[in-house]
Amino acid sequence: MSVLIYTENWDGKFKKVSFELASYAATVAKAMQLPVIALSLGPVDDSELSKLSAYGVSHIMKNSDERFNTLDNQAIAKAIALAAEKVKATLIVLAHNNLGKAVAPRLAVRQKAGMVSAVHGLPFSYDPFTVKKMVFTGKAFSHAVIHSGVKVITLASNSFGLVENKVDFAPEAFETGLGDADFVTRIEQTNKITGKVLLNDADIVVSGGRGMKSGDNWGQLEELANLLGAGTACSRPVSDEGWRPHSEHVGQTGKIIAPNLYFAFGISGAIQHLGGVSSSKIIVAVNKDPDAPIFEAADYGIAGDVFKVLPQFIEAVKEVKSNG
């Protein structure tokens, strides 16, 4: 028996989510007294694979088939299922991101496993297997029990963190035997967002709402984000108005994020907005209305004008940075 993680790669590279998965699975596997195994699909160099071993995962199964780069949901689910059978995985952990959400349900059916998505942190108990799960889009949590012998979960990003624990590293080739007929997704076009910190990866997110008044006013907000190495986000009306791209929309109907630090500039704090950001560790709100609901969710606030506050923030961050 074992704990299996599926570590997705992006053009052959891992990201923080991969290392969080590794840290999480290593910790859980230790508690369950089981070995932890990572599965990597698609071309990834051994030097990159070895990075997983810094977080407690020594056993890595790899398959370098380029066809996995099509992110074909059925082929990836099949390959993970084959690996799971090979290592007799009783717990399979995926990231709660686009691909993890797409593949986990298929995998659960294949393995006759119960599945829980958006798991926060370590299980409460291993028998019965009970985890904390986000429900009502962040407005509450449930304690969910998985009864089946094999269990599938997706881990909410930033809900566990990184635990460094360097172990020996041994990659092993893994054959899937999948044929061309197993890959049905034909890619016609790919548009990558380049030169920006991606929202789901960002430790800090700088977000603007309708209080920013116009898409032309985002300069200072972007400057602050650049200084902080932060991602930029917005409320729904801002993306609906076309002031900012849809990929930046956070909230119940947009992205759900959980950075360490979230700045809300000119955002009222509607319940649907908070649903997407309330798991952030620290929330800073700037709103000229002292009664705006965002202040109930925030840790630090300024009841003031964003256009007066932004320049001061930018200056202060520059000072903080230059003082090391």
Partner: peptide, 29 residues
């Protein structure tokens, strides 16, 4: 059914928001 939700909890109540004056914004950073 292979899973069930046994209990629910609300997110931990936030401490009151610490307010900083508009002209002291640098302090917040």
């Amino acid at each position: 059914p292979m899973t069930n939700m046994v209990t629910f909890e609300m997110p931990p109540a936030k401490a009151a928001c610490k307010m900083i004056a508009e002209d002291q914004a640098k302090d917040l950073i």
